[in-house]
């Protein structure tokens, strides 16, 4: 039994070690409070709607989010009609008409979010050579996830003595290498929230990071809720199996 325990411990240790071994070296983003973290975490719908507003009014001028469709926005608490209205604000290429021409049509809920640039080259050309990456999976594609996103958005600062920042670059405490091609675009009052929440930098960075988590993991709530049920079931099942096992084994040693 001792050997068994030690093995389990060793395995757990091994996992912990390798997990931390994979962490990157740049400034570690401080942990923030998130409504969706923890075993029972759920999305804060109001924050999601505000975050969507930030994405739509600020980030979407540069960043695509092509894995998300307008219809998905219903999960943020928008009604079907509201989603239709949001989609209709965008013009997307229609299927070729009888003359073979491709004309524009208003987007419908089934369409994916419209990208700001037709291709990577156009995006780079408009951003001084830097490519604003697609944000659909950004919250899962960086170490520290949403904590990093929040830190990045609030981490623009004056460069320390002796660091020269080239034209078109900005100094960010949390970006690997510190020199980022994205301007400190998000500021206090970059947006005016529909629900009158004061749009401080901290507030809007927090909201848009929450929104990006939802975009990357839209089934997070279902996953956690299912998880609680599965774990409860397995606990009861394991308990029952243990009881049966003791009963069966009771006569094993005369």
């Amino acid at each position: 039994m001792r050997a068994f325990k030690t093995l389990i411990l060793a395995a757990a240790l091994g996992l912990g070690l390798t997990g931390s071994a994979l962490a990157a070296e740049s400034a570690v983003p401080p942990e923030q409070e998130w409504h969706h973290s923890g075993i029972f975490g759920t999305f804060d719908k109001a924050a999601l709607q505000r975050g969507f507003q930030v994405y739509k009014e600020v980030c979407s001028t540069c960043h695509a989010m092509s894995l998300v469709s307008y219809r998905n926005l219903q999960a943020l608490g928008f009604s079907e009609d509201e989603v239709k209205a949001i989609a209709a604000q965008y013009q997307v290429p229609a299927a070729p008409n009888d003359a073979g021409e491709i004309v524009e049509r208003p987007a419908i809920p089934a369409d994916h979010f419209k990208s700001p640039f037709p291709n990577e080259q156009a995006a780079r050309a408009a951003n001084g050579g830097a490519y604003p990456p697609d944000l659909s999976l950004m919250a899962k594609a960086r170490e520290h996830g949403e904590d990093y996103l929040y830190a990045l958005l609030t981490g623009f600062e004056e460069p320390p003595e002796g660091v020269t920042v080239p034209d078109g670059m900005y100094y960010n405490k949390y970006f690997p290498g510190h020199l980022i091609g994205m301007p400190p675009i998000l500021q206090d009052d970059s947006v005016t929230y529909a629900d009158n929440t004061p749009a401080t930098l901290a507030q809007s960075a927090h909201d848009v990071s929450t929104f990006l988590v939802w975009a990357a993991e839209p089934h997070l709530e279902t996953r956690k809720q299912t998880g609680v049920k599965v774990i409860l079931f397995l606990l009861v099942f394991a308990g029952m199996m243990y009881a049966v096992k003791r009963k069966v084994w009771a006569d094993a040693h005369p």
Partner: peptide, 26 residues
Amino acid sequence: LSIFLLVFAGFVFFAPNYMGHPDNYI
């Protein structure tokens, strides 16, 4: 097995990307 499945479920439902690498979402 049921204890093993408990650990398995813990990862699947509460830390599904813990053992993966974020770069694979790029």
